[in-house]
Simulated scan of single mutants.
Amino acid sequence: MKKALSFIVIAVFAMNLLSAQALPKFGITGGLLNTNVDFKTGNSLLNLIGVNNFAKINSTGFYIGGLVDIEVVDKFHIQPELLYGSAEDLSFFYLPIMAKYYVADKFHIQAGPQLNFSSNLDDIKRAIRDTEELLGTNGDVDDVLRTVGVDIGFGAGFDVTENLAIQARYSFELTDRYSGPAGGVLDIKGSAFQVGVAYMF
């Protein structure tokens, strides 16, 4: 009985919330993407000879995709997106879910989790081969590289018009890309910075 009552209360609250909010807005987005991948080692000798500096990837490219802006309450929105990003020999599909809060009339800040799915990691694979040669743990690079990562992102945006906005976001990986035999001394994590425009229909 208590579970049924709790469900009814939650359902009524959700219906009131949905009826009070505006309809979701759909849009497209795109712009400049900069990706950075750091190879960090816990081996002091390798750090001394500069492996961290040797194995560092920084690439610039573009991103494009679609988004949905959902107004939950006044000033607070949820914005899920599906993006494709490419930067030289790295490419990813990103699935961010950003919470947006309008701190001023047209200016908002945003933060939230993001999944990234790699479709091309050739630059990282080459760097892993070079790093594993120094570590003496050569293996099949396709077996030691995780293709899915979990990120956290934050940024800001400005609504130029009712349909056009500019936004910038920085995200960094919480998970380690590397799962090979050198896992005790080698971590591979990426980050991304994007700045672009969003057009709402």
Rank of each mutant, 00 (worst) to 15 (best):
90 L>S: 09
90 L>G: 03
90 L>F: 09
90 L>H: 05
91 S>P: 07
92 F>Q: 04
92 F>A: 05
93 F>N: 02
94 Y>C: 02
94 Y>M: 07
94 Y>Q: 12
95 L>S: 05
95 L>P: 02
97 I>H: 04
97 I>N: 03
97 I>D: 04
97 I>C: 06
98 M>S: 06
98 M>H: 05
99 A>D: 02
99 A>P: 00
99 A>L: 14
100 K>L: 07
100 K>N: 09
100 K>T: 02
101 Y>N: 04
101 Y>E: 02
101 Y>L: 11
101 Y>M: 04
102 Y>D: 00
103 V>T: 01
103 V>W: 00
103 V>N: 00
104 A>N: 00
104 A>Y: 03
104 A>C: 01
105 D>G: 00
105 D>A: 08
105 D>E: 15
105 D>I: 00
106 K>Y: 07
107 F>G: 04
107 F>S: 04
107 F>I: 11
107 F>C: 05
108 H>G: 02
108 H>S: 10
108 H>E: 05
108 H>C: 10
109 I>Q: 04
109 I>A: 10
110 Q>G: 06
110 Q>T: 12
110 Q>R: 13
110 Q>N: 13
111 A>E: 10
111 A>W: 07
111 A>M: 14
111 A>I: 14
111 A>T: 12
112 G>Q: 10
112 G>K: 09
113 P>R: 09
113 P>I: 08
114 Q>T: 04
114 Q>F: 03
114 Q>C: 05
115 L>V: 13
115 L>G: 03
115 L>R: 02
115 L>D: 00
116 N>E: 11
116 N>S: 14
116 N>M: 07
116 N>V: 06
117 F>I: 13
117 F>E: 02
117 F>K: 01
117 F>P: 00
118 S>C: 10
119 S>E: 06
120 N>T: 12
120 N>D: 15
120 N>F: 06
120 N>K: 15
120 N>A: 11
121 L>A: 12
121 L>F: 05
122 D>E: 15
123 D>S: 15
124 I>M: 06
124 I>S: 06
124 I>E: 02
124 I>A: 08
124 I>P: 01
124 I>D: 04
124 I>W: 03
125 K>H: 08
125 K>Q: 14
126 R>Q: 14
126 R>Y: 06
126 R>L: 13
126 R>H: 13
126 R>E: 15
127 A>L: 10
127 A>W: 00
128 I>A: 09
128 I>W: 04
129 R>S: 15
129 R>C: 05
129 R>M: 11
129 R>N: 14
129 R>T: 13
129 R>P: 00
129 R>L: 14
129 R>K: 13
130 D>G: 09
130 D>P: 01
130 D>Y: 12
131 T>I: 11
131 T>F: 14
132 E>V: 04
132 E>S: 09
132 E>L: 12
133 E>W: 02
